[in-house]
Design a protein around this nucleic acid. Structure first.
Lengths: 338, 338
DNA sequence: TTGAAAGCGCTACCAC
DNA sequence: GTGGTAGCGCTTTCAA
């Protein structure tokens, strides 16, 4: 039997009325000029009875439940997702809110059902997240709700969105190599022509910085963003006589494939080739040697989005670009010669 | 403005009372012998007004909210966690329930606060999960609640728990090698003496099956369950003249380290050494060649736990051991000779 | 068969 | 300063 003690019980035990007990328990005793003596009695009674307000009853009156929902397309397929959920969880808890988590599985019908269920339970606000950065269309039920977009954008509605600063991340990746003396023979591995915003932005940032330094990419090895594809394509590149001084991989999984292709041919990182990557997933520290990677700041992004949702003032800026921290590890070493 | 339409509105439009409307909308029209004509009017009115019952108001009366909570120690550090969350999400949705997700961060104070918050919102039932199999102590607030344990056990209370069938998984891992002709030179890599139940059970299963076949492990290479440690310890083993025909790794991360140690020395999988592992994480398919692994059935476990919680009949069996599916890939090949 | 009315626990208005 | 009282939207008993 949880929450059996009611406000009424507290009032009775404090020998006062529900109203008075209510005011002191909601911290409005000063405002209502409740006698100090009364105040103490109420507080003591509440304590002794271990009173806890029934949030459902309160919500029925106030229409606020102190709950938010994280609606995401898919959580399990991407190991990265953990950061987003974790960040949202921690931030919500910090604001005294609880978090519903939902997965739409990219199914509009399921999505609509879930949004309905959430609304029926009077969720206060929504985090609408995508596992990879892209433009989304908000489900109809969310159009009139308080929403912050996480790792995605929309053109349908004026609502704040939080994304990684991929462009700057790209610049940083290139800068790491320039600072260690790499100028020629820098290859990009991945598929930058993809629909995926991240790829385009990262590539743009890389090229921008390289150009500013008076140099450019030696070329691109095309492959999907998965180890197997990178292993094969980069292996083919090497077998075809391709030679790289440094490689920028569009994510850690691609870097894993590159490592595999290299070691299978007796080449070493960073001895023969320096490697820089993006995401800073678990893989980055598991690879041998550990991989220098520009991190996807998932936790921080989620925290920012929650703050936008629950913070006091409505944000002036609609777009928040969260910096991608650079994690320097042993996969980069100074270029052989000047 | 969501949920603005009330039962009252529907009753008015259907030209009947709230009670009648209520009965037909909750499907108790037959039981209450509501006139077919009335029934139709109510249904039509509800449809036209897009009536949706306010679950908070309903909950205030019935004390059921159709929500469950997943309380977990930590979600972000283990990429595996995704499966558990995903499974719980899908199963809960299947039962028309929404899922609160909480992370206690192994902090008893935070855990207690969260349990309190959940109770204040009248969560119907709880999934108490651990990211690695172990014995847990339930927070006080959960002692009187409907709880199912996920990937953990407790001695404090009689409540159902769901764990992987690690013992059988161990037997299967050994069987895979026996069936491909491996009898001698089978090494275990990992730390089976750990506090972790999984390690002990897996090892026990392996030894059982090997013994039944009249053979035994050639030995154990001790290391923690992380790539780096496995890379170093297994590397040292090889450098010390150690030779293995096949290796059973206590998880995929260990297998990754073993792969790295092998390829760094020009040895190949499965050409020189066959490798079998546990967990079937993302890594297993990313490694080159893809790794044969005995899967941790996280989704299925979560689904089972939800069913125990929400299913009609109270489970007769308190303990559910979920089989670990074997994923055969290219890391095993027949032993060189008989 | 249908309808009036009470009440879940809380908030908030308005008298005293 | 304090205490009735009226709902929030729903369920459910009881009478008609």
């Amino acid at each position: 039997m949880p929450s059996r003690v009611t406000l009424q019980d507290v009032a009775v035990r404090a020998d006062t009325s529900r109203t008075t007990a209510h005011y002191v328990l909601t911290g409005r005793d000063r405002e209502m000029r409740i006698a100090e003596e009364t105040r103490r009695r109420v507080l003591r009674a509440a304590n002794e009875l271990r009173y806890r307000p029934d949030l459902m009853a309160r919500g029925l009156r106030t229409r606020v439940t102190r709950t938010i929902a994280l609606i995401t397309d898919t959580i399990a397929t991407e190991a990265y997702a953990g950061g987003l959920v974790h960040g949202a969880l921690a931030a919500a808890a910090g604001h005294g809110h609880l978090l519903f988590v939902c997965e739409t599985e990219e199914d509009p019908a399921l999505e609509e059902r879930l949004v309905g269920e959430l609304a029926d339970r009077h969720v206060d606000a929504y985090l609408y997240a995508s596992m990879f950065t892209r433009d989304v269309s908000l489900p109809a039920g969310l159009r009139t709700q308080r929403v912050a977009l996480l790792n995605c954008r929309t053109s349908q509605r004026k609502c704040p969105w939080v994304v990684p600063d991929e462009r700057r991340g790209g610049r940083d990746a290139a800068r790491i190599l320039l600072e260690t003396g790499h100028r020629e023979g820098i290859w990009l591995v991945g598929e930058p022509n993809e629909q995926v915003v991240a790829g385009l932005e990262r590539t743009a940032g890389i090229q921008e910085t390289l150009r500013a330094a008076g140099t450019a990419l030696a070329g691109t090895v095309h492959c999907t963003w998965w180890p197997e594809s990178a292993y094969e394509e980069f292996g083919a590149f090497l077998d075809g006589g391709g030679r790289a001084s440094a490689v920028i991989c569009l994510n850690d999984r691609v870097a894993m494939g590159v490592y595999q292709a290299l070691t299978a041919r007796g080449l070493s990182v960073p001895g023969d080739v320096s490697v820089v990557s993006f995401d800073d997933s678990d893989l980055a520290v598991w690879l041998q040697p550990p991989l220098t990677s520009v991190a996807l700041p998932h936790r921080e992004m989620a925290a920012r989005a929650v703050r936008l949702l629950l913070g006091r003032q409505t944000p002036t800026e609609l777009e928040v670009r969260v910096p991608m921290p650079v994690r320097l590890r042993e996969s980069v070493r100074p270029a052989a010669s000047a």
